[in-house]
Design a protein around this nucleic acid. Sequence first.
DNA 1: TTAATAGTGTCTGTAAGACAATATTGC
DNA 2: GCAATATTGTCTTACAGACACTATTAA
Lengths: 258, 258
Amino acid sequence: MDDEKEFLAHYDASKYERPSVTADIVIFTIDEDNELNVLLIKRGGHPYKDHWAIPGGFLEAGKESIDEAAARELYEETGVKVSDSIDLRQLVTVGSPNRDPRTHVVSVVYTALVPKGLLHIKAGDDAKEAKLFKIRKGYDENGDLSLYFVGDKCSITLKNLAFDHDELIITALKRLRGRLNYTDDAFTLLKDKSRFDILELLRVHEAILFQQLDKSNFRRMFLRDYVGKHRVKELGQYEQEGKRKTTLYKYLGSEYDF
Amino acid sequence: MDDEKEFLAHYDASKYERPSVTADIVIFTIDEDNELNVLLIKRGGHPYKDHWAIPGGFLEAGKESIDEAAARELYEETGVKVSDSIDLRQLVTVGSPNRDPRTHVVSVVYTALVPKGLLHIKAGDDAKEAKLFKIRKGYDENGDLSLYFVGDKCSITLKNLAFDHDELIITALKRLRGRLNYTDDAFTLLKDKSRFDILELLRVHEAILFQQLDKSNFRRMFLRDYVGKHRVKELGQYEQEGKRKTTLYKYLGSEYDF
DNA sequence: TTAATAGTGTCTGTAAGACAATATTGC
DNA sequence: GCAATATTGTCTTACAGACACTATTAA
């Protein structure tokens, strides 16, 4: 064991070439129109100056874990703390030597699901501007099915994004959709998951899938899989303005962790 | 644009503290006894000298992508090339500052599924020894359900592994199981996926799940989901020694990519 | 009274788990 | 013939998609 201590004392960490590491985040939310949104920032510096990108920043080596870096970055951009029952999870790690012209950058990419009410968006260090964009289906110049992003007074196509962020957003969306039926992701996007009705949850699913769902079948699934299994509690009937009264529910918690 | 060129010319990459980055691989295979195995190496140097660990190595910054580093590492340890129709995919990225006592190491962890016939195991640079271990269910000292690893002349418990590799292997196994029903992972573990019968595929599923499956129901699923959808082709009836003849199949390819 | 929203009921095809039965072949 | 393996069949329960219907309330 002294052997090991001695080894560590003489270990020279600068011996190998190291890449930079960043934590980048695809932040999804649902807006007032029940549409799926993504948070983008306008880059203030080179490279890709003035291009839109997903928020992110460098890992402070030796000081924080990569998950902590992502949480810090999320907080700096949106004021949201990970403890606020949002959902921040790893998506993928990318690390081609040339994806950033400055130097070799390995990016650990996260997806965060945040109710819009919690977001207090502010442009961080590198950013000129930060705002939400509606995600819409569309077609690229080849006529292939693609995505574009509609924000206040501007609209961006997928391939105008900085770096490889176009691919990252697509991967994030695919994963979100794939997970929808066997996770509780949709609940974390509700305005208030302690007080919602079935239709609100349905709207979240529809926003993610870009597709209308059958109310009746959704209701049956919800009652069987959530209420029936005590993962959601019925709060009773409540008045709501402008509509007939409805049954509200409270989300209790997840059982899954993979 | 000259602006950007100038910026890059003066960019000083050494400005920020950087972590080291490694690609580590959980390599699974199925042995002659139809049991699930994992490849471990015995560390030859500090830290964790003489402890067993999953293979891995440092990313050569600027020279290769992180996926390439994983492929290189797999090749160095097993002689297997990624083109050999094996399955190498990202599992998770871990990066606590203190998980490696030398310096801050961010590890991008991969899972590889390799038929045993392709493996030509050799101990790489850092390793004294490399070999396959059967993965078995067991109980730890608290009586909790756990895993242990049985190799030629030795047996290892989960928490005797180096670093946080115990958690990584558990995560890999959980993921493998979770993916079993909606991916084609099991096919890549077959001895020969161009020539197999239903029982062989069943044995792979059983090995992964640590659980017996009903032949009849498995067969029905296989015919419906694979043969029926032309993802597997029937080759016809074939003699096999010591048994009655059986129908062989050929795996054609995957449809999924997430 | 109409329109919108909340909620119920039903029909169909398909899938999963349990398990029984038959068929073929080596020994 | 016996044992092992391959293959088929059946019964039950559960779930998904489509769609028609009723109930309540605001305007």
